[in-house]
Computed example of a mutant assay.
Amino acid sequence: MKAAPALLCLLSLVACSGKPPTPESDPAKSASTAAPWDAMKQDEQRAKDVQKLVNKQAADQDKQIEQQSQ
């Protein structure tokens, strides 16, 4: 019975050998992956573009109304 704990310790030490662990992710693959906030920045830019379009249309409509009222 005394040999069982010693055997378990020896097996644990052998399992934890000095070799380095294999990387879980490929560095080239992670470099091409977009950051989590990139999608939010794209949405923000899209919203800014839509706002510019709405402002331009409103200005055009104001010009038309002003021309009709003269």
Results as ranks from 00 to 15, higher is better:
Pro36Asn: 00
Glu44Leu: 11
Cys9Met: 13
Pro21Arg: 09
Arg46Ile: 01
Gly18Lys: 07
Gln42Ala: 14
Pro5Phe: 06
Asp26Tyr: 01
Pro27Cys: 03
Lys52Pro: 01
Val54Asp: 01
Ala6Ile: 07
Pro23Ala: 07
Leu7Asn: 11
Gln51Asp: 12
Lys29Arg: 15
Ser25Pro: 02
Val50His: 06
Ala34Asp: 07
Arg46Met: 01
Pro21Thr: 06
Cys9Lys: 12
Glu44Pro: 04
Pro20Leu: 01
Asp60Gly: 10
Lys29Trp: 15
Ala35Thr: 08
Gln67Ser: 02
Ser69Ile: 11
Ala39Trp: 00
Lys19Cys: 09
Ser69Glu: 13
Ala31Thr: 09
Gln68Arg: 07
Ala35Tyr: 05
Leu11His: 07
Pro21Ile: 04
Val50Ile: 05
Ala58Tyr: 04
Ser17Phe: 14
Leu53Thr: 13
Val14Asp: 05
Ser30Cys: 11
Ala15Tyr: 12
Pro20Lys: 01
Ala4Gln: 05
Ser69Gly: 11
Val50Gly: 00
Pro21Val: 01
Asp43Ala: 13
Pro20Val: 00
Met40Glu: 14
Lys2Tyr: 06
Ala34Tyr: 04
Pro36Glu: 00
Pro23Asn: 03
Ala39Leu: 00
Gln61Tyr: 15
Asp49Pro: 00
Ala35Asp: 11
Lys52Trp: 07
Gln67Lys: 04
Leu10Cys: 12
Ala39Tyr: 00
Cys16Val: 04
Asp43Glu: 10
Asp62Arg: 06
Gln64Glu: 14
Thr33His: 13
Gln64Val: 11
Met40Ser: 13
Val54Ala: 02
Asn55Arg: 06
Val54Ile: 09
Asp62Ala: 11
Leu8His: 13
Ser17Trp: 15
Glu44Ser: 08
Met40Cys: 05
Leu10Gly: 12
Leu11Asp: 06
Lys48Cys: 09
Gln70Lys: 13
Val14Trp: 15
Val14Glu: 09
Pro36Met: 00
Gln61Asn: 15
Pro20Ser: 02
Gln42Ile: 02
Ser69Arg: 13
Leu7Cys: 08
Ala28Thr: 09
Asp60Leu: 08
Ala35Pro: 04
Ala4Val: 03
Ser12Asn: 04
Asp26Arg: 02
Lys48Asp: 10
Lys52Ala: 13
Gln68Thr: 04
Gln51Arg: 11
Ile65Ser: 10
Gln67Thr: 01
Ala59Asp: 09
Asp49Val: 02
Leu8Pro: 01
Gln57Ile: 05
Gln45Ser: 04
Lys41Pro: 00
Ile65Tyr: 08
Lys48Trp: 06
Lys48Val: 08
Asp43His: 08
Ala28Pro: 01
Lys52Glu: 13
Ala28Met: 07
Gln64Lys: 13
Leu53Trp: 10
Ala28Arg: 07
Ala3Cys: 03
Pro20Thr: 01
Leu10Val: 12
Gln70Val: 11
Glu24Pro: 01
